[in-house]
């Protein structure tokens, strides 16, 4: 876990809580939380709680970091709490099947080589890609199409920044299962991005 509410994301700038565009920040937070939680009510609650917590603590904070990364770090902790709470319900738990490699096998021939139609092609300049709005739009669409259980593990790893050992403990799965799920998730996401970004840049 990423050490507490005020973690090591400080930037040497002073930015006040009143300087930033709260509406825009809230929208971004809501988008982020909805992707993680897949439920707009819980997402709204998490964002509301994170913003309130940030507002209450704002005097301690002023000038110590970028407001955006600070508020997002609070939000990530809120989301982790909700995921942890959910993991206690058996209906939500992951099964052995979620660690299956079948979906991956579809990408390769019998010798384990890329099938021609899904072989990864070049995406051009990587630095320019992720700061491109169009790419991020496709990225969000692709994340939404991820299967729920794969998405849960992927989000905990990539968005909440948890280590796989912590994810296994939280979700009560083996670490190797966790790796298979992440491998599947990343491969699917990659393919979806390639279809949306490279083969059809006009998606809006």
């Amino acid at each position: 876990m990423e050490g507490g509410l005020l973690n090591n994301e400080q930037q040497p700038t002073s930015e006040s809580f009143t300087d930033i565009d709260l509406t825009k920040l809230r929208t971004e937070m809501l988008r982020f939380a909805t992707l993680q939680l897949r439920d707009s009510t819980s997402a709204e609650d998490a964002v509301q709680e994170a913003l309130s917590a940030a507002f209450v603590a704002k005097d301690k904070f002023e000038g110590r970091a970028k407001v955006r990364s600070w508020v997002f770090s609070i939000l990530r902790n809120k989301i982790i709490d909700i995921i942890r709470e959910r993991a206690r319900h058996p209906s939500q738990s992951l099964t052995q099947e979620d660690g299956s490699e079948d979906e991956l096998n579809e990408l390769f021939d019998e010798n384990g080589r890329w099938r021609k139609d899904v072989q990864p092609s070049s995406w051009g300049q990587p630095e320019e890609t992720y700061s491109n709005d169009q790419f991020m739009k496709i990225f969000e669409i692709c994340l939404k199409t991820m299967k729920e259980k794969v998405a849960r593990v992927f989000m905990m790893r990539e968005f909440l920044g948890l280590e796989t050992s912590d994810i296994c403990t939280e979700l009560n799965i083996s670490e190797s299962n966790c790796w298979v799920i992440l491998h599947r998730g990343r491969s699917r996401l990659r393919l979806c991005l390639e279809n949306g970004w490279i083969n059809n840049e006009e998606i809006t």
């Binding site: 994301e9 971004e28 982020f32 955006r68 990364s69 508020v71 997002f72 770090s73 990530r76 890609t129 992720y130 700061s131 790419f135 991020m136 990225f139 969000e140 990539e158 968005f159 909440l160 920044g161």
Partner: peptide
């Protein structure tokens, strides 16, 4: 891209 989206 994930970090970018999550404010990191």
């Amino acid at each position: 891209a994930c970090r970018h989206m999550g404010g990191r």
